[in-house]
C-alpha cells in the first residue's frame, strides 16, 4: 500500500511538471508574430513588446542554457564572466564558513545558556531582540567595520545562522529529561562527563534541527548578500545576468540554487536520522 502511494505520488508529481512545462511552452511560443510593429528588433526585445516571444524564454531555451552552463561550469573568463559552478563554489564556501563559525560559537554558547537558568534569563531578552533582525541589516555595519566585502558576506551568513542553532541548543539542553540527569547524578558522573555523555546525546536531535534551519536560512541569505556585495558568487551571477538581460540564465541559476539547497538540507536530515533516538 505504501509502495503504491509512493509510485502514485511520483507519477502525479511528474504530470504536474509536464503540465506546467506545456503551459509555459504554449505561453512563450504562441505569439511569434510581433515583428509587425516595425521597431528595431533589439529595441522591441528590450521593451518586451512582442509579449512572451523573446522576453520570457521557453522551457526549451532554459534546457539548452542549462546544458550549456553545466557542460562547462568552471570556466573563468574575467571578473564578470565565470562559470556557474565556480560561482556556486564561491557561495557554498561562504555559506559553509559562516555556518561553521556560527556553529562553533552558537552550540557551546547555547549549551551554557541551557544549563544555567541565570544566563538564560539574562541573555534571552538580548537574543529575542537580535533574532528577528534581517541579516542584511548588518551588512552596512559589517562593510564599515570589516572593510572587506567577501568577509562581510561571511559575517552576514554567520549572524543569520547563529540564532536557530543558539535557540535550539538552549532549548534542547534545558529540556533534557530530569530522570536521565538523575541517572548521571546517582552514578556520580562528573559534571563535564555528564554534559558530554548524557546532555549532549539527549539534546542532539534538537541541536541538529537548529542546524538544519540555519543552513536553510544561510542558503537563502547568501543570494541576497552576494547581490549586494558583488564580485563573485551565485547571487552576483544572477545580478550580473539581470544586467545582461539574460532571463534564461537567471532561471538556470534559480533551478541550480534550489537543487543545492535541497542537497544541503538532505545532508543535515541524514545526520539528524543518525543521531535521533526512539524513546
Amino acid at each position: 500500500m505504501k509502495q503504491t502511494s509512493r509510485i502514485q505520488s511520483s507519477l502525479l508529481s511528474c504530470t504536474i511538471v509536464v503540465l506546467v512545462l506545456m503551459v509555459w511552452t504554449a505561453f512563450t511560443t504562441q505569439s511569434g508574430g510581433g515583428v509587425a510593429s516595425g521597431a528595431d528588433p533589439a529595441y522591441a526585445a528590450l521593451m518586451n513588446e512582442d509579449a512572451g516571444g523573446a522576453g520570457i524564454p521557453s522551457p526549451l531555451d532554459v534546457g539548452r542554457a542549462l546544458v550549456q552552463q553545466l557542460s562547462d561550469p568552471f570556466y573563468d573568463a574575467g571578473p564578470n564572466d565565470k562559470g556557474i559552478g565556480l560561482q556556486l563554489a564561491y557561495s557554498l564556501a561562504r555559506v559553509l564558513l559562516g555556518f561553521a563559525l556560527a556553529m562553533i560559537v552558537g552550540v557551546p554558547l547555547g549549551f551554557v545558556i541551557g544549563m544555567s537558568p541565570l544566563l538564560s534569563g539574562a541573555l534571552n531578552p538580548i537574543i529575542q531582540i537580535l533574532k528577528p533582525v534581517s541579516p542584511l541589516a548588518w551588512m552596512p555595519l559589517a562593510l564599515y567595520t570589516i572593510k572587506d566585502s567577501g568577509q562581510s558576506a561571511i559575517f552576514v551568513i554567520f549572524i543569520c545562522s547563529i540564532w536557530p542553532m543558539l535557540v535550539n541548543t538552549t532549548f534542547g539542553v534545558a529540556n533534557v529529561r530530569s530522570e536521565w540527569l538523575n541517572v548521571g547524578r546517582t552514578l556520580e558522573v562528573p559534571p563535564l562527563k555528564r554534559a558530554l555523555t548524557i546532555i549532549l546525546p539527549a539534546a542532539a536531535p534538537t541541536i541538529v534541527t537548529g542546524m538544519r534551519i540555519s543552513i536553510g536560512i544561510a542558503w537563502l541569505v547568501i543570494v541576497a548578500a552576494e547581490m549586494l556585495v558583488g564580485g563573485t558568487g551565485i547571487g552576483y551571477f544572477i545580478w550580473n545576468e539581470w544586467n545582461n538581460l539574460s532571463i534564461v540564465n537567471i532561471i538556470v541559476a534559480i533551478l541550480v540554487i534550489g537543487v543545492i539547497g535541497m542537497i544541503l538540507d538532505q545532508m543535515l536530515a541524514g545526520i539528524s536520522r543518525l543521531i535521533t533516538f526512539q524513546e
Binding site: 536521565w180 552514578l187 555523555t197 546525546p201 543521531i275 533516538f277
Partner: peptide, 28 residues
Amino acid sequence: GPSLDRAVIFQGHALLPWMTVLGNVAYA
C-alpha cells in the same frame, strides 16, 4: 549528595534511549 553506594531503581526505568542494553549497564 548522590553516591554510588546507594543505587536507585527508578519508577520509569530511566534508561538512556540512545544506548544499547549493554551500553546502559556498562555506563554505570
